[in-house]
């Protein structure tokens, strides 16, 4: 009965997710060629083997750095928000304002601010030649910065909601048992916020791992992260490279699903989840 009630939602979601992934898988395995006879092969995966490997490494690095930084900054902001002082309200307002701004706008703004011809080096009077390569540089700083800016606000609001509702009374109890602020943070607040942080981290990792526009705008032309590589191959004038784009998409999806599985396993091991 309950299955029947959720079936409309399941059908729509299933059509997009399973249909999309299924099509990509079929196409990447050479079973849906533009011309010619379908034949099962891994050619699409091997055609850009080196780029695929480097792209995977790069995407993993960007997503990991963005996720870790967002979680640390977001958790800190959440703790500040729930202290209930003026600073807390300001941080909450700034976080809430960040959420509706699209990544594309954020990326453009970051580019305008911190590129070698950007507003910040100009205001500081530093010539572009002496300004570090933050945009399009070897360390993908602007990309990670953009993700961290937006996703830390997301973590802050999600975790603050949990801290304010579920953790506040435990925090009081711990204080009355003689635990100072730092001890409470370590022994009570962080352990109890862990499920919310893990869930946020899974969402951020999967998003930043598969997101295209920020890496494309603020990154360098080569090497390419997986979504940029997939889109370039998909958009290529060589229509026969479509299966290669599908192969990159399948690899991206597989890694994302693996990360979700690992994240859920971690979540299940936290005592609060039970």
């Amino acid at each position: 009965m309950s299955l029947a009630l959720v079936s409309p939602a399941l059908l729509v979601a299933g059509f997009v997710v399973i249909g999309g992934i299924g099509m990509s898988l079929v196409q990447s395995l050479g079973l849906l060629p533009l011309v010619g006879v379908p034949s099962l092969s891994l050619d699409a995966y091997l055609a850009n083997g080196e780029e695929l490997l480097i792209g995977t490494g790069l995407s993993l690095a960007i997503a990991t750095a963005s996720t870790v930084l967002s979680c640390i900054i977001g958790l800190t902001a959440a703790v500040v928000i729930t202290q209930g002082r003026r600073t807390g309200r300001i941080v909450a307002a700034v976080s809430a304002l960040t959420i509706p701004i699209p990544h594309l706008i954020g990326a453009a703004a970051i580019g305008l601010l911190i590129s070698d011809a950007g507003i910040i080096p100009r205001m500081l009077g530093i010539p572009g030649t002496e300004w570090p390569d933050l945009v399009g540089g070897p360390w993908w700083v602007a990309v990670v910065l953009e993700y961290t800016w937006k996703e830390s606000a997301f973590v802050a609001l999600v975790v603050a909601a949990v801290l304010a509702t579920r953790v506040a009374r435990y925090d009081e109890t711990a204080a009355l048992l003689g635990a100072g602020r730092a001890r409470r943070l370590r022994h009570v607040v962080i352990p109890l916020a862990r499920p919310a942080v893990i869930v946020s981290a899974i969402i951020i990792f999967v998003y930043t791992f598969g997101s295209y526009e920020v890496a494309w705008l603020l990154g360098r032309p080569y090497p390419e992260p997986l979504p940029v590589l997939a889109f370039r191959l998909f958009d290529s004038i060589t229509l026969t490279s479509r299966p290669e784009a599908a192969a990159v998409a399948v690899v991206t999806t597989a890694i994302s699903l693996a990360v979700v599985a690992i994240g859920m396993a971690c979540l299940r091991r936290t005592p609060l989840w039970k």
Binding site: R169, Y170, T173, L176, P271, L272
Partner: peptide
């Protein structure tokens, strides 16, 4: 140096 017991036990779940 005050310890308090509330209506809910509030034992640390972790």
């Amino acid at each position: 140096g005050m310890a308090m017991v509330f209506q809910r036990p509030l034992l640390f779940p972790h």
